[in-house]
């Protein structure tokens, strides 16, 4: 049984953490072939070949595959699909854009955000913002799956898979890339960071979010935010943690001024240690916190930043 795994490639570089976590999830399903696709993808393919458990790497380079446009990427995957029983990817926004399109073209259901592998046909996935876990058994000939990276450990390095090039499929030419607005940051990436400090509506302004960022920098942490903070313009959209944002499971998650709506909890409740700082002692975030501090964040956060490290 063979698995085709769509690597996460950003501007020609492999997103190693997300891809290696998906490899861990996919390994038990069969021999894993990684597909690195992009405008440039050779370096990403070389990097993927070093992931433990990868049997083969396919590199597809073509201008039409740049910026991971759904139509051309899906067409490529479908052109390769014949050899594989499972077609999988880490559950990133890129893969969530592409994989349901692949599934429909193959006339199969997609299994999004799988958090567990029971057997080759049976998978667990959270539903209702993680308030329930469903085990589903696929009756389709091919399984198209995205894996929730926060629930799998990254596969190690040390592999030396063979690398082959493949051609892009015909570009349907339906869409074109205009621009990316990507914030450059020296902080760890949110979904792979060991520590995450998140701010919510209670932080009150974009300017005061600097308090959150200062604490994060002291802990070498990534910065997250609740939906309310993003909607209010205090933080950019790519910081959002929750049901429809990013799902994180760091060693330490510090929630500051976040009330703890179920939609937010969906994105962080698998964190190992959760700290909540909120002035409202009734806030639901305290129900999932290992350590709760009922305090004014404008006093507690600078004090915490000072006392740590």
């Amino acid at each position: 049984m063979a698995v085709l795994l769509l690597a996460e490639v950003n501007n020609g570089e492999l997103a190693l953490d997300a891809t290696a976590k998906a490899v861990t999830a996919a390994k038990s399903l069969g021999d894993v072939t990684v597909l690195a696709a992009g405008g440039t993808a050779a370096a990403a393919g070389e990097a993927a070949a070093k992931i433990d458990g990868v049997a083969k790497v396919l590199v597809a380079e073509d201008a039409s595959l740049g910026h991971r446009l759904a139509e051309s990427t899906a067409a490529l995957i479908v052109s390769l699909a014949g050899d594989y029983e499972h077609i999988v990817a880490p559950a990133t926004t890129d893969a969530k854009n592409v994989m349901p399109r692949v599934a429909a073209l193959l006339d199969v259901m997609v299994i999004s955000d799988a958090s567990g592998v029971v057997d080759a046909n049976t998978f667990e996935r959270p539903i209702y913002a993680g308030n329930a876990v469903q085990t589903v058994k696929s009756n389709d000939a091919k399984k198209v799956i995205t894996f929730r990276t926060s629930t799998f450990d990254a596969a190690g390095e040390g592999g030396s898979a063979s690398v082959e090039t493949v051609s892009a499929a015909d570009n349907p030419g339906l869409s074109e890339w205009v621009e990316d607005k990507v914030a450059e940051s020296d902080r760890p990436e949110l979904t792979s960071a060991g520590v995450v400090v998140s701010g919510g509506r209670g932080v009150g302004s974009e300017e005061d979010f600097k308090l959150i960022e200062a604490l994060a920098d002291k802990l070498n942490a990534a910065v997250g935010a609740s939906r309310a903070a993003v909607d209010s313009g205090y933080a950019p959209n790519d910081w959002q943690v929750g049901q429809t944002g990013k799902v994180v499971a760091p060693e330490l998650y510090i929630a500051v001024g976040i009330s703890g709506a179920i939609q937010h909890l969906a994105g962080m409740k698998d964190s190992k240690i959760i700290v909540a700082i909120n002035k409202d002692e009734e806030a639901p975030i305290f129900q999932v916190a290992d350590f709760g501090l009922v305090a004014d964040l404008f006093e507690a956060v600078p004090a915490l930043t000072e006392k740590l490290g």
Partner: peptide, 25 residues
């Protein structure tokens, strides 16, 4: 196409504690 085998509650977290100060935290 997907047969629902079961639907379960997610694992609950153990109750935590409320600390009294930043120092205690």
């Amino acid at each position: 196409r997907l047969e629902i085998v079961s639907t379960t509650e997610p694992a609950a977290r153990d109750a935590g504690i409320i600390v009294g100060s930043v120092d205690e935290l």
